[in-house]
Design a protein around this nucleic acid. Structure first.
Lengths: 337, 337
DNA sequence: TGGGCCTTTGGTATCGTTACCTTTGGTCAC
DNA sequence: GTGACCAAAGGTAACGATACCAAAGGCCCA
């Protein structure tokens, strides 16, 4: 058996009795081919087992129909929702997502951005607003729409769809203080890799200090992203080291759930003995007992809006850099009543 | 300001005073260019802001360094782990993952597979062993390694890394029966879209019938994938309709956690009043109170093994189709003691 | 000193599609 | 009858890299 070379458009054209150009048009949407010719060509192609070769099309037309996306972790419901919203918004225009993850590391992000730009995407969406200088330069010079998400960068590269992580945490602090709780702790990662997590911690400290409160109850739970288990361990330490703590804000719902489960394991009543809040409005927070107070940053909307921006930018309907600000929603539930 | 055309290898070559071929070699790893020449070329390229153009390279070399992957949902920790294991195993060889999701729909899978094959990946990894006839044909004729995962298909297309979903559930049934629990229910989706979920339900029915037990306690919780909330609703219905049920097996840990939370909300003791088991060994099952009995199918290993198979296949070290069988681990925890 | 061999570099054609321009044949109004 | 116009199809060159082959120069040993 000879491993025959796969058929090309020229083969389809020859057998269908038309020119390669006509075959090419038959595979496009709105091109001028008579319906009879088109269906005959498509049938021939199917019979031959012809598969359209995007690599050639990409090179000649200088279009790839890729949108590059970087997220910190592939295993995170929030970012998955953003990618989902993005993918749905782009699907109709035939744009496909080229996804890479940075593992919360801006050096890895730099490598990834270079890899992705080599594939000549039509646009690129990155998570966060902090990048290495070289990554920044590559994005600026890429000549394609750049969208930073999940953050409000001081100096945006292009467009932005995000919110203030610090500001969102401040609102949660205000909520607790409004209930008369002043001995508040923060559970987060112990490194600055997760820049959004770092911003949330900074927001906590700033908010506490602005109210004249002690902002030193900071529990570092490990290398970001903080897992449920690490949230539980952090809560164990908190209960041991500063047992008079009245409320705790966690860097995500996952660590908050871990903290909650540790309380249950030790017979500490939530919220009677201690209030707990998370971040991200993961499904678990609305299902567990008691339900978790949290902040919903509308991850899916972030993706959907980024998709809209991309489509507008590609159609030239965008005059300049756009900042699309999300207003996170404070969700007060049973864990902090 | 004129939007200059981005520089090409020819531009870099001219400025660096070498031929385009030498520039091309400088960007490859193991090619024969003197170290001095290479670094001079790379510096020139960086100065010019040159970005390597994969689209041209792909066409000429007939290699894309893509591995296509289809998963049912981007927002699922199990599949995310598989993709993570796969990506890590492929990273060293410079292979990049081209990911698409099917939304648990084999018609959508067919469209997706066609899209992905047009990009000329080096290999393709699909989730599950059931496909439309056309999808099957496209995979068979693709001429690249095909790997089906998370399943043991009757008629594999190429290689397989998977396990018997039905067999895994049977072991959980045996566990319950061994404890003297015979009135066992199953909570799953109400459609056949999720073929692995369907297999698990079928495995439950077969196992119960083989033991002469009533296999009719089937709670359909909605369109797959079943969420935590739907798991909770299903448990509510179960407690109302067949309150003498002694144990319940859920199609995933997520629905199992929902079921558990519903019990807590109603004061039903787990496992004293009812035992609960899940599937997938999601982190939540090891953190919640009580911890959840479950089945660990080693999702990350599935991806890692698929990566190994791909590398072996691409190097021609694989003689024929390989079935790599995973043995899921039964984890008995507090929810079924 | 010369031939063999290796390292490093260069020239040319080409991957498979599509942008751009041209051609063909038909319809329609005057 | 003729020119304007349009739909449908074809011809040619090009996108930017690299496979393949060739050649230049250096080194070693007989």
């Amino acid at each position: 058996m000879t491993p025959r070379k796969p058929p090309t458009m020229a083969d389809v054209a020859r057998i269908a009795g038309v020119s390669p150009m006509t075959v090419s048009r038959a595979f496009k949407r709105d091109s001028s081919v008579s319906e009879a010719t088109r269906s005959a060509i498509l049938r021939t192609a199917e019979d031959l087992g012809y598969v359209f070769d995007s690599t050639a099309s990409n090179l000649r037309s200088q279009k790839t129909d890729f949108v590059a996306v970087t997220i910190p972790s592939i295993n995170n419901a929030n970012f998955a929702d953003t990618v989902g919203g993005l993918a749905d918004g782009l699907k109709d225009r035939g744009l496909q997502i080229l996804l890479g993850y940075t593992n919360y590391d801006i050096l890895e992000e730099e490598r990834l951005i270079e890899q992705l730009l080599r594939r000549r995407p039509e646009a690129i969406v990155v998570t966060g607003g902090r990048h290495t200088p070289r990554a920044r330069r590559m994005l600026e010079n890429s000549g394609i729409p750049v969208i930073e998400t999940w953050d409000l960068p001081d100096k945006p590269i292009g467009h932005v769809v995000g919110f203030s992580n610090a500001g969102a945490v401040r609102r949660m602090v205000d909520h607790f203080v409004g209930q008369g709780l002043t001995r508040i702790a923060f559970i987060g990662g112990d490194a600055d890799r997760d820049t959004r997590g770092t911003d949330r911690r900074a927001g906590f400290i700033a908010a506490m200090q602005a109210l004249g409160l002690d902002a030193s109850r900071l529990i570092a739970a490990g290398v970001p992203p903080i897992s449920m288990r690490e949230g539980a361990e952090a809560m164990a330490r908190l209960l041991r080291d500063v047992p008079d703590t009245q409320a705790v804000i966690c860097v995500s719902d996952l660590s908050a759930f871990g903290a909650l489960s540790e309380c249950q394991r030790r017979g500490v009543a939530v919220p009677a003995d201690i209030s707990i809040a998370g971040f991200g409005d993961y499904e678990i927070g609305s299902v567990c007992v008691p339900t978790l107070s949290t902040i919903n940053p509308f991850p899916r909307d972030i993706g959907a809006r980024a998709a809209t921006l991309i489509l507008e930018a590609l159609e030239g309907r965008l005059s300049g850099p756009t900042i699309s600000q999300i207003t996170p929603e404070l969700l007060i539930r049973d864990s902090s009543k």
